[in-house]
Structure formats: structure tokens, C-alpha cells
Amino acid sequence: MFTQVAGTYTTAAQIMCSEYSEQLVAQLFEFLQQQKIALPISLNFSGLEHNICNSSIQLSQLQIFCVTELDLSYTNQNLAHIVKTFATKLKSLILVQSQRQSEFDQVFKLTLDQLKYLNISNNKFQDHQLDYIIGKKSALQLVLLDLSYCDLTDSDLRKYSANCTKSIESLNLSGNFISAEFLRSFLSQKLFPLNKRWV
């Protein structure tokens, strides 16, 4: 997981929290704190069954870590609370098939200044939620956005097409109910630079 050189750790860590018991994950974080590790860390809580917000893992204590990637897919966790803990340094957020879609309003109202990659595939959105992700109310400066298999239609995306062009370079729309005619119109807009990638 880490490479130690001259008493310091030099390799970023990816911590798969869902594969271990709550006790073992807590011990791992305690070790990281003792070693004063300040490397970029990827936390994967995907499919986690125990509630980390009511466990011996104290999220507030983890703010000392440079958590840049967070995966909360397929979980029934308190999404807003966890994302808020790491919001200032977060560059990648994965929320595939979230069981707490009702919390998306809170999550995307957070200040996520560093966020560049967002995967929210296999979710169902209400109009106002899309507005906080790619609409006029969005403060996100995403480079990669995955909206695949979200049951989106032409009308869902039509009013957001101009906003998608601001910073997004790669947009995954596969598995949605979008017509070829709309896609041609969507991609032919002068607002889209030629180097943008749309799937």
C-alpha cells in the first residue's frame, strides 16, 4: 500500500474500506495518523454495510489526510456528511447507484472547488438536482462527468446543454434515452470545442 523511503511514505494510498471489518479500518486510520501521512489518499467505501458515521472511525479526525478520491457507490451511508468532511481537497467523487439519492441536493450544494471527476451513473435525478450538477446553479468545474444509465431523455438535457460546455471535456451519456437527432444537434453547437469528448 505504501512505499517507505528514508522514513517517509512516498506512494499514494488506496484504501478499500468496504473489504475490511469496521475494527480493521479504524486501526488502519489510526496507523495513518500516527505516521503523519500527508499523501493523496483514495477512500473506497463502495458497498460498505456498517455505518461509518456511527462507528469507531471518526470522520472528523480524517480531515488531516489529503483525501482526493472518494467512492461511495452502492452504499447506504450519510453521503452529505462524508463528502463534506473531505470537500476541500476532493478531486474525484464516485456515487454509482447510490442508495441515498435524496441527499444529492445537500451533496452538490457543497463547495467542491477541486472536483474534476464525477461519476453518478445508474441514478435517477429530478430536474432541480441536475441543475446543481450541470445547470445554472452548478458551481462545479468538472472535466469528466459520467451520467450513463440515468434514464435521461432529450428534454432532460436540452436546457443544460450550454452549461455542459463550460469545463467538461469528457461526458458519458451512454445507456440513456437520448435520440440520435438530439445528439447531432447537441454536438453540432458552436459552443463545443473540437477537442471535447462525448460518449
Rank of each mutant, 00 (worst) to 15 (best):
M1C: 10
M1H: 10
T8N: 10
T8G: 05
Y9V: 06
T10H: 14
A13W: 09
C17M: 07
E19F: 03
E22G: 07
Q23F: 08
L24E: 02
A26N: 07
L28M: 09
L28G: 08
F29M: 03
L32V: 10
Q35I: 06
K36R: 15
K36Q: 15
A38K: 15
P40G: 10
P40Y: 06
C53W: 05
S56F: 07
I57G: 03
Q58W: 03
L59N: 00
S60W: 02
S60E: 01
S60Q: 07
Q61I: 02
Q63P: 13
I64V: 15
C66T: 14
C66W: 10
V67K: 13
V67Q: 09
T68H: 13
L72A: 04
S73N: 01
S73I: 03
T75G: 05
N76F: 07
Q77A: 01
Q77H: 00
V83Q: 03
K84I: 05
T85Y: 00
T85G: 09
F86R: 11
K89I: 06
I94D: 03
I94S: 02
I94V: 12
S98R: 03
S102L: 03
S102Y: 09
E103W: 06
F104A: 04
F104P: 01
F104H: 04
Q106M: 09
V107S: 01
V107R: 00
D113Q: 14
Q114P: 06
Q114S: 15
Y117F: 13
I120F: 06
I120K: 04
S121D: 08
N123D: 08
N123E: 11
F125G: 11
D127C: 07
D127P: 15
H128Q: 13
L130Q: 07
L130S: 10
L130C: 09
L130D: 12
Y132S: 08
Y132R: 05
I133D: 13
I133V: 15
I134D: 10
K136V: 01
S138I: 06
V143M: 11
L144G: 02
L145K: 05
L145Y: 09
D146S: 11
L147G: 05
Y149F: 13
C150K: 00
C150R: 01
D151F: 12
L152W: 12
T153Q: 11
D154H: 11
R158H: 14
K159P: 04
N163I: 00
N163R: 01
T165W: 05
I168C: 05
E169Q: 15
E169W: 14
E169L: 15
S170G: 08
L171T: 07
L173N: 02
L173R: 00
L173Q: 06
G175K: 00
S179F: 11
S179C: 08
F182R: 07
R184D: 10
L187G: 12
L187F: 03
L187R: 06
K190W: 12
K190G: 09
L191A: 14
P193S: 15
L194I: 11
N195H: 14
R197H: 13
R197A: 03
R197P: 03
V199L: 12
